[in-house]
Amino acid sequence: MNKIQQWDLRVCQLCLLHPYNRTLARVSRIVSHSGDGPLYLLLALLLWQQGARGQGAVETSLFAFALELPLYLLLKNSLKRARPSGLPVFITPSDRYSLPSGHTAAAFLMATVLAASYPEWAGSLFAWAGMVAASRLLLGVHYGSDLLAGALLGVSCASLALGWGQG
């Protein structure tokens, strides 16, 4: 087992093998659902009504997701990393593989795009994205390195989309 796998396993054990894991899982389910696709659609509709700044954020988000989704699917289906096993799991994941975390990628993508349009909310946006990522670990469906890869994917695609819009 390599060092990353050892670290991943230790982090999962620390986060999932304690007496409060069910309580954390209840909260984590709510936080995780805040990073589901339908809520992004609702957010886009609300932002669109806010005028040029909100519309620009929606357009940039759509472009960023157009970059992120194919990369996410390619990575997930090429790497085929198994989800954590032998530890508590509190939800049924939507697919078989864990790397990268799609919820984390989407949350960091949105946080990055929205922070560019609404810098006054940057701290709260990235705190929310971090909580979405942590919720996936606390629900038992991802390793820590899955979350880091998801965050990197989301921020990278958002940054490319933001840079493209300025060029």
Rank of each mutant, 00 (worst) to 15 (best):
M1H: 14
I4L: 03
Q5I: 06
L14R: 15
C15W: 14
C15A: 14
L16I: 08
L17M: 09
N21W: 11
R22C: 04
R22K: 15
T23D: 03
R26I: 07
V27F: 07
V27T: 15
S28N: 08
I30Q: 11
V31N: 05
S32A: 13
H33R: 13
S34V: 13
D36Y: 11
L41P: 02
L45H: 04
L46D: 06
L46G: 06
L47Q: 14
W48G: 07
Q49H: 11
A52V: 10
R53W: 03
G54E: 05
Q55L: 02
Q55S: 14
S61G: 10
S61V: 02
L62S: 01
E68M: 10
L69N: 09
L71K: 04
L73E: 08
L73S: 01
L74E: 12
L75A: 03
L75T: 12
S78T: 15
L79E: 10
L79F: 11
K80S: 07
R81P: 01
R83Y: 14
S85D: 13
G86H: 15
L87W: 12
P88R: 15
P88K: 14
P88T: 15
F90E: 10
T92R: 12
P93W: 11
D95W: 12
Y97K: 08
Y97W: 15
S98C: 04
L99S: 07
S101T: 12
G102D: 03
G102M: 03
H103I: 01
A105Q: 01
A105E: 01
A106L: 04
F108R: 06
L109R: 13
M110W: 13
V113T: 10
V113N: 04
L114N: 02
L114K: 02
A116Y: 12
Y118A: 03
E120S: 12
W121N: 08
A122E: 06
G123S: 07
G123Q: 10
S124T: 14
L125W: 10
L125N: 08
A127Y: 02
A127I: 04
W128D: 00
A129W: 04
V132M: 00
A133P: 00
A133M: 03
R136F: 02
L137K: 10
L137P: 02
L139A: 08
L139V: 11
V141K: 05
H142E: 06
Y143I: 07
S145T: 15
S145Q: 13
L147Q: 05
L153I: 10
G154P: 03
G154N: 03
A158K: 06
S159N: 06
A161Q: 10
A161Y: 10
G163A: 08
W164G: 03
G167D: 11
G167F: 09
